[in-house]
Design a protein around this nucleic acid. Structure first.
Lengths: 341, 341
DNA sequence: TTGTACGCGTTATCAA
DNA sequence: TTGATAACGCGTACAA
């Protein structure tokens, strides 16, 4: 039993295809009587219009493309969750692709989605300027683009992310208020958000008149966890052997922070007694870490949800160009890793 | 600048549409000369065929539907990662939906995907018998279905999951070999995989002639973490106050196991000195838990990858019905939570 | 070797 | 109020 089409209904009821189509669309042109007959028969046959044919006719695919760097972490899957929720509310389908932090793969993703046909694109770009011309082409082809999470891209459009400066400031200030003034900041190499987070860190230090020690800011390789572990360990040991021993670490990402906890445990350094730890993190089980992790949590689901809704708005209002950058507030969660109480 | 079509090329080169179409398909009917002209112009114009029109013509959407219960956890996002990889290799698009552990939502997902048009469906069902008739209808409509992760559904088709019995057996045996004989098994209510895991647990006990104590097997509510926490705590306290105090806990899921660690820490019970812990788990940072968590790890990416490839095979071989259930092997990872060495 | 004509399932315009 | 017809872009059987 194949799917029912307008033609099938037309034949069965001896009514023309176009009348059937209009009747199902509840058109004012059609008599109530005919409408009733058609609609009843259609629902009896479980008719639903062929979306592919509709797409071809209308020129819209009702599909949104989503490009993220990696899907296999809690932060991104929460964002996707938010996107998905919004897609259900709005009736759009979403097709997700992964760029795996590679500009060439990102390029391929954009091209595949474009060839496939999408009404709009949500993208968390690999880097600040990656594939910016391709994205511009999309926009010129009347396919709106919204950037999320990594809101550094120079593209003229809506962007949705978090206030990284403010989040880093809050984390650092919290550590200082706990009496920790020698704060090591470990961040990622080539990480789009690192600049803002570094500035937030610096700003908090400045506010409390704490001088910034140069080797207290380390950029690590976050692609390869072996190298990362080595770099974190070296950084900690170097700082420990200095005049001003560190008594706190502020990690810029989930991976950095959790691995730091592991390394500190291996080194036999007590957290938070000797070194307090806080980090940007969205793992679902901060309480189960060793020790329970204080963190700056990002409203991941909301990022996705808002980004999706902004995109839908752009799709429905093609001429709108009063673009906006939304920076959501982060949440400071204090647990044992940064607090002796 | 809209997208180039066959018609555009036809006009520009003064060649009929069908000749252009055939030339681009490298048809034997067309002269090399014409082919060259057409192909060069097409690639210059960056032509790619309109997928929607192709779909309408061919009756295939080149899209696979994926229905999972929840996307926001490491286990599932690793599976999706595997599905995605396979989809790139095979050139299919994937549309992901979430059933949120709700049979009615699951039903809606299936209907939406069916209305949209998919060439095949990958589903991790909410429960053993959920929407089985709908899925059968899909199959009758020549849309193959492959079941993954939760391979308990009675549908006649390919299924890909893990060997839960074996995994539970390995975990339990490991605990016994560590000298732990009073092993509490905490599992989830209405969890499809729980029966097999329970049997693996029982089998290992039997092999070592350890009697099964009835209140050493607890089914908890895994929907609501508040209730779950309470149930785990009560179970532990009850067992502790019995004649045979537990010296190990085997958790059936990620959430159960990590929350158990948290509860044990709150109760001031030392892991692994007093109680060893092991669980089914796929979190990315077992080493950062308190203490580093021993676990049965599931080859999540592979589950997705294999399921996708089996589905593609079914799509390409509509008459094939020699269905198979693949049970992948789990990996035992021993860390501090279950080992004193 | 090339071109014409038709159909996939819709929607929309215009005529009846 | 209804129906015939064209069109979206592509692929293909058949005619030239």
């Amino acid at each position: 039993m194949a799917k029912t089409t307008l033609k099938d209904i037309s034949k069965a009821l001896n009514i023309s295809i176009s009348t059937v189509s209009k009747a199902l669309a509840d058109s004012y042109e059609i008599s109530e009587k005919t409408k009733k007959i058609v609609q009843e028969y259609a629902s009896k046959m479980n008719f639903s219009p062929n979306k592919v044919a509709q797409s071809l006719k209308i020129g819209k695919t009702n599909t949104i493309g989503v490009i993220v760097c990696a899907i296999n972490n809690t932060f991104m899957s929460e964002i996707l969750d938010g996107i998905q929720k919004a897609s259900i509310e709005t009736g759009y389908d979403i097709v997700i692709m992964q760029s795996r932090e590679d500009i060439m793969i990102e390029k391929a993703c954009i091209e595949v989605l474009n060839a496939r046909g999408i009404d709009g694109l949500l993208i968390s770009p690999v880097s600040e300027t990656s594939n910016i011309n391709l994205l511009q082409e999309l926009q010129e082809n009347e396919t709106p683009v919204v950037i999320f999470d990594r809101i550094v891209n120079q593209l003229k459009t809506d962007k949705v992310g978090i206030n990284n400066f403010e989040g880093a400031y809050k984390a650092t200030k919290h550590l200082i208020e706990q009496g920790r003034t020698n704060i090591l900041h470990i961040t990622g190499h080539q990480l789009g958000v690192s600049k803002d987070r570094l500035n937030g860190y610096k700003d908090a230090l400045r506010e409390f008149d704490i001088p910034l020690k140069p080797y207290y800011f380390i950029e690590c390789n976050i692609q390869d966890t072996e190298i990362l572990d080595q770099q974190i360990k070296t950084a900690i040991l170097k700082a420990l052997s200095s005049d001003n021993k560190p008594n706190a670490i502020f990690g810029a990402t989930d991976v950095i922070t959790t691995r730091t906890l592991g390394i500190l445990a291996n080194l036999g350094i007590k957290v938070p007694e000797e070194i307090a730890v806080i980090g940007f993190s969205n793992i679902s089980i901060p309480f189960a870490l060793n020790p329970a992790l204080s963190r700056i949590k990002q409203p991941a689901g909301e990022i996705g949800n808002i980004a999706m809704k902004k995109l839908i708005y752009l799709i429905k209002h093609p001429t709108y160009n009063d673009f906006e950058t939304v920076e959501l507030e982060t949440i400071l969660e204090i647990r044992k890793s940064s607090s002796l109480n």
